[in-house]
Amino acid sequence: MLHAALPLALVALLLPAAQAKEAVNPLLLQPADTLEQRQIAELQQRLLDWPQLQRYRDENAALSAPVPGTPRVVLFGDSITEGWGRTGSDTFFPGKRYLNRGISGQTTAQMLVRFRQDVIALQPAVVVILAGTNDIAGNTGAASQAMIEDNLQSMVELAQAHGIAVVLSSVLPVSDYPWQRGVQPAPKVRALNAALKRYASAHNVVYLDYHTPLANRDGGLDKALAADGVHPTPAGYARMAPLAEAAITQALARPR
């Protein structure tokens, strides 16, 4: 029974992260014994493997070494990155076959734990980091801007220590989270992005600004670009793709 395996207090703690995967149809917090089996399994797995290191472990092990003359690029992030597609190339980056290592619902703390396995060990020339919105939403608990910055800066430092060029992406515009109403994220996103831009300028990092060309006057995303206000539609990704491609090209041209 769930009562013995997963106490209600832990369900209450972990449920926001599970809800992040169901942003279009968020689930209300319920007593543990009424949760669907899929949700229960998901929450139990989070207890066993909080950063989800198992997600790409087999794919990473099967990956061959980078081909000389063909720089490897890793897209690293949460559901917004995962939405590019499993290879990151099928629609938006034709012929590039960028490696996608996005996991829905993840915060920067979880991503930092798996950075060595899902980025450094793959020996990319460039990593594109896009994260922070789930921290602001509180998916794994309250996170201050300083905490988010610390995690992202640690990822940058790890990458640079291993000769990997970094593209540090802005957090996408968002005016409300469908699974976490009332957070009022727009000003928090703007403040975090301003800090990331300053950091990138001071540390030889390419800053990828998605926010400026995508934001509406409320600091969010129009429905044409993100039906739920968070996750890009194909039209949203089509706006993002050339910006990402230009940033990757710029990163590859920089001395490391």
Results as ranks from 00 to 15, higher is better:
R57T: 12
G236V: 13
A12G: 08
A227E: 11
D228C: 03
T107N: 07
D78L: 06
S89G: 14
Y237C: 01
K188D: 07
E22P: 00
L221H: 07
A191L: 11
L29Q: 12
F115T: 06
Q44E: 15
P31W: 01
A238R: 15
A65D: 14
A186P: 01
A235I: 13
G69S: 08
R101G: 01
R114M: 07
L75Y: 03
L196T: 01
A253T: 06
Y237D: 03
N134F: 04
P178F: 05
A227R: 11
K197V: 09
N216L: 01
R86D: 13
L152Q: 13
R57D: 14
A12L: 13
G138P: 00
A142M: 07
L168V: 01
W50Q: 11
V189W: 02
L172H: 01
V24H: 09
A137E: 01
E245I: 02
G182I: 10
L152G: 07
V11S: 08
P51K: 14
V73S: 05
V127K: 09
I40N: 04
M111H: 09
A62S: 07
G83K: 02
L172M: 09
A109Y: 09
L13K: 15
P178C: 08
R198T: 14
A194G: 13
R239S: 07
N100M: 10
D150S: 13
